[in-house]
Design a protein around this nucleic acid. Structure first.
Length: 855
RNA sequence: GCCCACUUGGCGGAAUAGGUAGACGCAAGGGACUUAAAAUCCCUUGUCUGUAAAGACGUCCCGGUUCGAGUCCGGGAGUGGGCACCA
C-alpha cells in the first residue's frame, strides 16, 4: 500500500507505468474481440513534437484506450511520413545527409511521443523512407502504370526557381512556393500523372456513404471534385482568313439556357487557337508571354482585372446569326472544360466584368422575379427566373430552358449535354532527391518500361551532392545509367521522385503487416480495413484524404484490393492556438518575455511596450509556440493530456493558457491527496456505507449517472464534456464527510471512477488503481456499464410557465397524468396569485416536463 | 470574388427530442488558515432595478413558425478557415 501524504511525482509514476505496459505488451493486437483500427495521421519527423501533435495523439489515445476497455481488439500503430523537403533543406543548410537527419529526428520524436504514454503498438512502426516501404510502393506504382492509371504528359507546372522543382497548384500559396516562398513561374514539363479524374464520379458519389465523416469535409471534397452538368457546343468561326485549319470552337457551358444573352467567346491563352494565332501576331505573342510570367494565385486573379485580347475573329451565334467576337482572356482556364467559354455578361459575374471593360453588350435573358421594370443590371444576375428575349425559350424556367436548348443543340447537331469536373489529374512527379524513386526506365530504343520486380526496391544513391542545385538524382554521376535486364540495351532511370502524398495515401495498409511482403488481398487487410477511426487535422480535408480514397479505388478497379474506402470514420481536430504579441517595432515577442504591470505589457529585457494581438495557430514565426517537451517535463503527460481534453471541444480550436495547465495539475493533486487519505483493507470491507449527510443509494445513483454521461460523451467525441462529467462526480465524492474510509461501496465507486479517468490520464489512473489495492493493471479493466434502474428518477422538477415564461418549479412524482398535473398546477398558491387578474385561455401540459398556461 | 465553418457571462465552454440557459473549468472579488506570502479550504459572481423580498431583460442583429426557440425557417452583420476565375 502506498504511504500517506507523499508528493505526486509525475516523472517517476509515468516512467514506471509506461514500462509496465510495455513489459506486458498491453497494446499489441490480441486477436480476440471485434477489431477496431484507430489511426492518427502520422507525423513528418521534424525532430520535435509540437502542441498540435500532443492534441491529435491524445485524442486518438483516449479513443484507443476507451475502445480497448469496451472489449474491442484495438490496433493503434504509429509511423513516420519521412520523405520530404525539410530533410533536403537541412542537407543543404547543415551539410547533414537527409537519411541521417531523418533518422535522428525520428529517434528524438519517438522518445518524446513515448513520454506522452500513448498506447501505440510500436511493433508495427513504419517509416516511408525505408527500403521495405519503398519496395512495396514501387510495386503499387508499377501496378497502376501497367493499368494505364499512371501516365506521362506535358503540362504547365508551377516552377519554383529556388527549389528547382515543380509544385502542385495546391502547394502554391499567394503565387509563391509554399515552402520556399519564391515567386512561381509557369514552365512546361513532361511529368507523371495519376488518373484521379477517371474516378471523379465514384469519389463524388460515395461521399454519401461515408456516414461517419464530418459534413464539412465531405462538402469540401464535393466542391473540389466539382461536378458541373452543362452542354458542349461547337461554334463556327466566320470571317476567318487568319487561321484556316481551325473552323470551329468547342465551348463548355453550365448555362446553355442563357445562350440568347451571349455577346462574346473567350478562350484560354494556352488554347490551341491562341497558340496558332501567336505565331502570326506579335500582339498575341506578347499577350501570352505576359500571361506566362504573371502567374499568381487563382484567388488573386479572381480579384484582379479581367484582361483580354480581341483576335479579330468571330463565331456565329447558333440561333441569332449574329457574329460574336473571340477574345483571348486571362480568366479562362485551359484545364477546365474545353478551355473556351461563351460569355453571357448579364448572368455571369466574370463575363459581366469583362463586358464592362471591353464595352460588350449586356443582354438580360432571365428576369428577376422581384423586379418588374427593366432597370440596367449593376451586377450579373445568377438566380432563377423566367426566360426573356430568348426566342423559343421565352417564359420557360431556367430548368425547362436547359432541357429545351440542349434538345435544340442535338437536333441541329451542334452540341449535347455534358458533365465536367473541376478535379484535375494528380501530378506525382517531384524533381527532388528525398522521395521514393519512380521505378521506370527509358530504354535507348525509346521504350518506357517499369523496372523488373526482382530489381525492387530501386533505392536512392547515398552519395549525393546538393551543391549544384537542381535535381540531385539528375546530376548524380552514375545512378541514372542502367541497362534493360531483358534486352541488355542501355537505359536511363527516371530521375523524378514521387510526391510524398503518394507515400501517405496507402500507409495505413502497410501498418497491418508491416514486416512481411505486402498482400493487398490478405485476410488481415479485410479484417482491419477500412480504418474504423481516422483522426487528423482539417487541413488535410481535401488532398491527403482524397488521394487516399482515389488510390484504393484505383487498386480496386484493377482487382488488386477488395476495399472501396480507406477510412470509415473521420474526425478532424481543431488547431492549438496561443496569444501573439508584438512590440512597438511590429516585431513578434515571446509570451514568456512579457511582464504585466498595472495592465501595461512590457518586454522583460528591453522594457519596450508590447501589445497583445490575438490568439493564432501556434507557429515559430509568430513566436507563440509552447514546447510540449518542457510542459511534459514540468507538469507530466497526464496533466498535459487533461488540459488538451478539457474546455475546448476537440473539433474546435484550443487556446493554450498557463492557468489552464495549472488548473489541470491542481485537479490531479486534489484527487491524489484524497486517495492517499483512504485506507482500504482488502477482504475486510465494511459493507454499510455511512455518511454524515448522504444515503449510499444517492451515491450509487450519482455514480451510474456519471457512467452514463461519460460513456455517452466519449462515444460522441465530446471529450471536454467527459472531463467535466468526471470532475462533477469527483466534486461530489471529494465533498463527502466520511465516517468510515474502509467501505466496500466507496471502494467500488472510486474504482469505477478511476477506470473512467483511465483513457484521459492513464498513468495517474494506474497509480490510483494501485492505491485502491488492486493488483491488476487498470489498462486491462473493462469499461463500467450504467444500470438503467439507477437512472430512473422517481421525482422530477416540473416547470410551470405562464405565456411561455418560467414562473415556478415544483417537485412532482414521475408519471402523473395530464389531469393530475392540471389540478396540481391550478391549486399551486404562487400560480393562483399570478392568475388573479387573468383568464386562462389554454393549458398545455407535457407530462414529466412542463405546463404552460396561456392567459 | 467564391466556398465552408463559427458567433451563448469577464474568458473556454455546457444544454437528449424545441421544454429550468450558463453544467464543468478559468479569471475576479470576499472570507478562513498564516507573523506574512504561496498553497489549500469556504462563499459570491449573466445584466439591470431594488435595502430586501422580488421583478424585468438576456444565447450576434432583424423577422417568422410555435403554447414555448440557444435549438427550426428566412434575411442580415461580424469573426475565422479554405480556394484551382470551374463558365
Amino acid at each position: 500500500m502506498t504511504s500517506h501524504n507523499k508528493q505526486y511525482d509525475h516523472k517517476k509514476v509515468e516512467a514506471f507505468w509506461q514500462d509496465e505496459w510495455n513489459k506486458k505488451k498491453l497494446f499489441s493486437v490480441k486477436n480476440q474481440g471485434e477489431p477496431y483500427y484507430v489511426l492518427e495521421m502520422f507525423p513528418y519527423p521534424s525532430g520535435r513534437i509540437h502542441m498540435g501533435h500532443v492534441r491529435v495523439y491524445t485524442l486518438g489515445d483516449v479513443l484507443a484506450r476507451y475502445k480497448r476497455a469496451k472489449g474491442f481488439d484495438v490496433f493503434h500503430p504509429m509511423g513516420w511520413d519521412s520523405f520530404g523537403m525539410p530533410a533536403e533543406n537541412a542537407a543543404i543548410e547543415n551539410a547533414i545527409h537527409p537519411k541521417e537527419w531523418t533518422k535522428n529526428n525520428i529517434d528524438n520524436m519517438k522518445t518524446q511521443l513515448k513520454s506522452m504514454g500513448i498506447s501505440y503498438d510500436w511493433k508495427s512502426e513504419i517509416s516511408t523512407c525505408e527500403p521495405e516501404y519503398i519496395k512495396e510502393q514501387q510495386k503499387i506504382f508499377i501496378k497502376l502504370f501497367n493499368a494505364n492509371l499512371i501516365y506521362k504528359k506535358e503540362s504547365w507546372a508551377n516552377w519554383d526557381p529556388v527549389e528547382n522543382s515543380v509544385l502542385a497548384n495546391e502547394q502554391v500559396i499567394d503565387g509563391k512556393g509554399w515552402r520556399s516562398g519564391a515567386p512561381i513561374e509557369k514552365k512546361l514539363l513532361n511529368q507523371w500523372f495519376l488518373a484521379i479524374t477517371k474516378f471523379a464520379k465514384p469519389l463524388l458519389d460515395n461521399l454519401d456513404n461515408l456516414k461517419e465523416w464530418p459534413e464539412n469535409v465531405k462538402i469540401m471534397q464535393k466542391n473540389w471534385i466539382g461536378e458541373s452538368i452543362g452542354a458542349k457546343l461547337s461554334l463556327k468561326i466566320i470571317k476567318n482568313n487568319i487561321i484556316l485549319d481551325i473552323k470551329e470552337i468547342e465551348v463548355f457551358t453550365t448555362r446553355p439556357d442563357t445562350i440568347f444573352g451571349a455577346s462574346f467567346v473567350a478562350i484560354a491563352p494556352d488554347h490551341t487557337l491562341s497558340e496558332k494565332l501567336s505565331k502570326g501576331s506579335k500582339v498575341v505573342e506578347k499577350f501570352i508571354k505576359e500571361w506566362k510570367k504573371s502567374f499568381i494565385s487563382e484567388e488573386d486573379l479572381d480579384k484582379a482585372p479581367k484582361n483580354g485580347l480581341f483576335t479579330n475573329l468571330y463565331v456565329l451565334h447558333p440561333f441569332l446569326d449574329i457574329p460574336l467576337p473571340i477574345y483571348i482572356a486571362n480568366f479562362v482556364l485551359s484545364s477546365y472544360g474545353t478551355g473556351a467559354v461563351i460569355g453571357v455578361p448579364a448572368h455571369d459575374q466574370r463575363d459581366f466584368d469583362f463586358a464592362k471593360k471591353y464595352d460588350l453588350e449586356i443582354k438580360q435573358v432571365i428576369r428577376e422575379p422581384q423586379i418588374k421594370k427593366n432597370v440596367p443590371l449593376k451586377k450579373a444576375y445568377t438566380g432563377n427566373g423566367l426566360l426573356v428575349n430568348s426566342n423559343f425559350l421565352n417564359n420557360m424556367t431556367v430548368k425547362e430552358a436547359k432541357i429545351e436548348i440542349i434538345n435544340r443543340f442535338e437536333i441541329k447537331g451542334i452540341g449535347k449535354k455534358d458533365i465536367k469536373y473541376r478535379l484535375r489529374d494528380w501530378c506525382a512527379s517531384r524533381q527532388r532527391y528525398w522521395g521514393c524513386p519512380i521505378p521506370i526506365i527509358y530504354r535507348e530504343d525509346g521504350a518506357v518500361l517499369p523496372v523488373e520486380q526482382s530489381e525492387l526496391p530501386i533505392e536512392l544513391p547515398t552519395d549525393i551532392d546538393f551543391s549544384k542545385g537542381g535535381n540531385p538524382l539528375e546530376n548524380h554521376p552514375t545512378w541514372k545509367y542502367t541497362t534493360c535486364k531483358k534486352t541488355g540495351l542501355k537505359a536511363l532511370r527516371e530521375t523524378d521522385t514521387l510526391d510524398t502524398f503518394f507515400d501517405s495515401s496507402w500507409y495505413y495498409l502497410r501498418f497491418i503487416n508491416s514486416k512481411d511482403e505486402l498482400n493487398l488481398k490478405s485476410d488481415l487487410i479485410k479484417k482491419w480495413c477500412p480504418v474504423h477511426q481516422y483522426v487528423g487535422g482539417i487541413e488535410h480535408a481535401v488532398l491527403h484524404l482524397l488521394y487516399s480514397r482515389f488510390l484504393i479505388r484505383a487498386l480496386s478497379s484493377i482487382n488488386e484490393i477488395e476495399i472501396q474506402e480507406p477510412f470509415k470514420g473521420l474526425f478532424c481536430q481543431g488547431m492549438v492556438c496561443h496569444k501573439t504579441y508584438k512590440d512597438e517595432e511590429n516585431k513578434w515577442v515571446f509570451p514568456e518575455d512579457i511582464v504585466k504591470k498595472e495592465n501595461i505589457l512590457t518586454h522583460k529585457i528591453t522594457g519596450k511596450k508590447v501589445s497583445a494581438i490575438k490568439s493564432e495557430k501556434m507557429s515559430k514565426s509568430k513566436k507563440n509556440i509552447v514546447d510540449p517537451v518542457s510542459i511534459i517535463k514540468d507538469y507530466g503527460a497526464d496533466t498535459a493530456r487533461i488540459f488538451m481534453l478539457s474546455d475546448s471541444p476537440p473539433e474546435r480550436n484550443l487556446d493554450w493558457s498557463n492557468s489552464g495547465i495549472e488548473g489541470s495539475r491542481k485537479f490531479i493533486i486534489k484527487i491524489w491527496n484524497f486517495f492517499n487519505k483512504l485506507n482500504f483493507k482488502e477482504n475486510n470491507y465494511d459493507k454499510n456505507l455511512e455518511f454524515e449527510d448522504y444515503k449510499s443509494s444517492d451515491f450509487i445513483k450519482k455514480m451510474h449517472l456519471c457512467i452514463y454521461k461519460v460513456t455517452k460523451n466519449l462515444d460522441n467525441f465530446q471529450y471536454n464534456v467527459a472531463v467535466a462529467s468526471l470532475r462533477e462526480f469527483s466534486n461530489y465524492f471529494l465533498s463527502l464527510k466520511l465516517n468510515n474510509n474502509n467501505n466496500e461501496i466507496l471502494h467500488k465507486v472510486l474504482s469505477i471512477w478511476v477506470i473512467m479517468i483511465g483513457p484521459i490520464a492513464p498513468h495517474f489512473a494506474e497509480e490510483l488503481w494501485k492505491i485502491l489495492g488492486h493488483e491488476t493493471l487498470l489498462a486491462e479493466q473493462p469499461w463500467p456499464k450504467s444500470d438503467e434502474r439507477f437512472l430512473q428518477e422517481t421525482n422530477i422538477n416540473f416547470i410551470i410557465q405562464i405565456n411561455g415564461k418560467k414562473k415556478c418549479v415544483v417537485n412532482l412524482p414521475k408519471g402523473l397524468t395530464k389531469d393530475q398535473i392540471e389540478n396540481i398546477v391550478l391549486e399551486n398558491d404562487d400560480i393562483k396569485k399570478m392568475l388573479i387578474n387573468n383568464n386562462i385561455k389554454k393549458i398545455i401540459i407535457i407530462p414529466d416536463r412542463v405546463a404552460n398556461l396561456v392567459v
